[in-house]
Simulated assay, not measured.
Amino acid sequence: MIQRIHLEILQALAEKGTLGEAANALFLTQSALSHSIKKLEDQLNTTLWEKQGRGLRLTPSGEHLLQVSHTVLPQLAQAEAVLRALGEGRRGKLRIGMECHPCYEWLLTVVQPYLQRWPDVDLDVVQRFRFNGLEALEQHQIDVLITSDPVLKEPLVHVPVLQYELRLVVGNTHALAERTTVSASALSTEHLITFPVARERLDVFTQFLLPRGVEPRQHQEIEAMDIMIQLVAARRGVCTLPDWLAERYQAQYPIQHLRLGDAGVFKTLYLVYREADSGLAYLADFVRAGAISEAVKSQS
C-alpha cells in the first residue's frame, strides 16, 4: 500500500529531476528507491514513472500521486508536530497565514512578547496575499489564519482580535484633505492605489465603490506599504488603510485620513484556527494574547 516514503520519493524526483539526486536527497540508494516504487507499482498494477532520455517522467498515475503528496505530507508533518507538542508540553511550531497586508502590521504588535513567553515554539509566517487561507488551514498547511474576511465554517473557530475603520488616506495638500468624510462619487476622479489583491477582496470596492456604481479614474496596485504612503503623500494617488495604521503613518508623513461615506466602513480582524487544535497551549496563548490586545485597545 501507499506509504509516506512513496510520496516523499515522488516529491524528491519532481524537485531534483533525476533518480540519483532524488535518492541523495532522501539518503537512499538508487536501487532501494527504485525497488520501493516498483513494489508499489506491482501492488497497484500501474506505472508511476517512465524513462525519458537520461531522466524520468511521471506518468498520469505518478502525477496524481504527486498531487496527493502535496496535501498528505503537510498533514502528516503537522500531526507529528502536534503529537510532539502534546508530549513535550511547550514545544511545537506555530504556522501563521495572512491574507491581508495590514495583518502583518498587527502581527508585529503581538509576536515579540509571544516569542518571549514560548522560547521553544518555532514561528513561521506565510505572507502570501493571493493564496486561499481557508484552504491552507483545512489542509493543515497553516495553524492560524489572520483575516478580515472570515468564512464561518465548522470545525473552525473565529476569534475577533481587532476592530477598525477603513479610512481614505490623502496627502496634506490634496483637495480632499480639508474634508472629514468623502463620498464614493468623489473617488471617480481619483487615482486609487491598493495592495495587489483581487477586487472581490478589497473592501474599498466591495463595501464602498461598487455598491454605488463608482469606478476610480485609475487603479494601481502596489505591494510595498511604505512606497504606497510616499506616493499618496506626494499627491500621486489616494489609498485606504485601517484607522490605526493610518494614524501611525500620519505621524511620519504629510497625510490625512477621511471617513468613507457618512456611515464609514468598519471591519474586524479575526484569528481563525481548527477547533481540534484548541488543546495546544501555545496556540491558545497566541489567540488569547491577540484578543487581550484588542480589549486593551478598546479601553484606551
Score class of each variant (00 low, 15 high):
179 R>D: 13
207 Q>A: 12
142 I>W: 03
151 V>Y: 06
206 T>K: 06
178 E>S: 12
183 S>Y: 01
168 L>W: 10
173 T>C: 04
142 I>R: 01
164 Y>I: 04
196 P>W: 11
204 V>D: 01
160 P>T: 04
173 T>W: 08
154 E>A: 13
158 H>D: 12
197 V>P: 06
173 T>R: 13
159 V>D: 06
214 V>R: 04
185 S>G: 09
190 E>W: 04
153 K>I: 10
201 R>S: 02
141 Q>W: 03
165 E>T: 09
163 Q>C: 05
184 A>I: 04
214 V>E: 06
154 E>K: 08
179 R>F: 10
166 L>N: 12
162 L>Q: 11
153 K>S: 07
194 T>V: 10
219 H>R: 07
220 Q>A: 09
178 E>A: 10
215 E>V: 02
162 L>G: 02
167 R>K: 14
157 V>E: 13
167 R>M: 12
141 Q>A: 07
218 Q>A: 14
212 R>A: 08
208 F>S: 00
174 H>S: 12
166 L>R: 02
155 P>F: 08
157 V>H: 02
195 F>M: 11
169 V>W: 06
164 Y>A: 07
207 Q>W: 02
184 A>Y: 06
177 A>Q: 07
152 L>P: 02
147 T>D: 08
207 Q>G: 00
194 T>S: 13
209 L>F: 11
143 D>A: 01
210 L>P: 00
178 E>Y: 07
214 V>N: 05
202 L>C: 02
208 F>W: 11
148 S>W: 01
210 L>E: 15
144 V>P: 09
162 L>Y: 07
197 V>S: 04
143 D>E: 11
151 V>T: 05
196 P>F: 07
170 V>M: 06
198 A>E: 15
148 S>M: 14
158 H>L: 15
197 V>I: 15
205 F>A: 03
152 L>R: 10
188 S>F: 03
142 I>D: 15
198 A>T: 05
166 L>M: 12
182 V>R: 00
174 H>K: 03
196 P>N: 06
144 V>H: 06
180 T>L: 12
157 V>R: 14
216 P>T: 02
205 F>T: 03
